[in-house]
Design a protein around this nucleic acid. Structure first.
Lengths: 193, 193
DNA sequence: CGTCTATTTGAATGTACTCAAAAGCGGTGG
DNA sequence: CCACCGCTTTTGAGTACATTCAAATAGACG
């Protein structure tokens, strides 16, 4: 079933009864998207949070001059959304684009609130998720201001080997905050040493 | 009382009964520190999460070459800790230093777990805090890779006017990830335009 | 197979850092 | 309360890092 991966993920952090599992699963719907389709478009409302069953998703921001900054990559077993817009009901600052054929479980904000109230353990699960997300992002901010581009590239590929294999240099460059041309020369110099 | 500010902060997000408030408050202890004292030292364990009643705290990382990267500033009505180390019981990656005389409410990890279990609403409160912290840090990562130093400086002082008045240029530079010398020239050019 | 996009490479330019020295400012002790 | 000391801030010259623009090559997709 589609729900197994989701329930396994949740089961790593909390325990649910069979009826709670049933309620939880009933609030999700399945979405299949193809390459280059968008889950969320910058400027539009963002109604769902997504759990990725398969495929690959990129979350990015487009500045007024057209430059893209990649905020995160999502693959199997990861959650993804524009959290600020999802939680605070604002127009999205991010776009979410499928980089491959992808399958997702979608949960609306209203249903999420229902789950918080009816399954207190679900709120614990999400607390832990948010906590880990916060720790990760703070770590990223630290690395951004502390390390050189070369070191940040090395750390990225060693921390997310799956991602660095499946996504392009250009996308990784926009995650690191450098141009693809510069990342190319950094890699060349890095190999020589 | 010392607890009022804390209970007011919590009360913005959830409602507690009188007995829950009493239990909650009983788990906190008061700590007063002077200028230049440390709450946490990098490399040592980090047992507490702190709620700031008054004063100012800086969280920073020191790299092997001695450079400091400021991760966050904390003032009255804010929570602060090295979350990764507090949650996962690892040696701290950050130091927390008082920049002024400060008063704090301290909560240990074990007591926090007790509160999660005994007061489900407290877990909701922390879920919301973690959610907001995640959103803020993601926003910061976005701004770091998208905007120029001048723009990031402008955004910082307009978002945190209190902080930019109370803390030094050097500290703000280390938060933005540039040298104090460069921040100085950026400010000069920014004024002229 | 052809087209479109990603990647590499190089030259010129701009951004940010290092090092050094002078000026400003705040805290502390006398 | 003032003077000194230490640290922060400013300023400038030289250097290293990173971008822009352009063109050639290589890969991916239909």
């Amino acid at each position: 079933m589609n729900h197994n991966l989701l329930l396994d993920n949740i089961g790593k952090h909390i325990e649910l009864t069979a009826s709670e599992e049933q309620l939880l699963v009933s609030k999700f719907s399945l979405l299949q998207v193809g390459r280059k389709e968008f889950l969320i478009k910058q400027g539009e409302p963002c109604r769902y949070i997504f759990f990725i069953l398969s495929g690959g998703i990129r979350a990015f921001h487009t500045a007024s001059d057209g430059r893209e900054s990649t905020i995160m990559f999502g693959i199997r077993d990861w959650w993804i959304t524009d959290m600020n817009c999802f939680v605070n009901q604002k127009p999205a600052l991010l776009s979410l684009e499928a980089l491959e054929e992808s399958a997702l479980m979608c949960l609306s904000r209203d249903d999420m609130e229902v789950l918080y109230t009816q399954i207190p353990q679900f709120e614990r699960y999400i607390r832990i998720l948010m906590q880990n997300a916060y720790i990760r992002e703070q770590q990223r901010a630290l690395e951004n201001i502390t390390y050189s581009t070369e070191e940040r590239y090395r750390r990225f590929i060693s921390k997310y080997p799956f991602i660095s294999k499946r996504f392009t240099q250009k996308q990784i460059a926009s995650y690191l905050g450098v141009t693809p041309e510069f990342l190319s020369t950094v890699k060349r110099k890095s190999h020589k040493s």
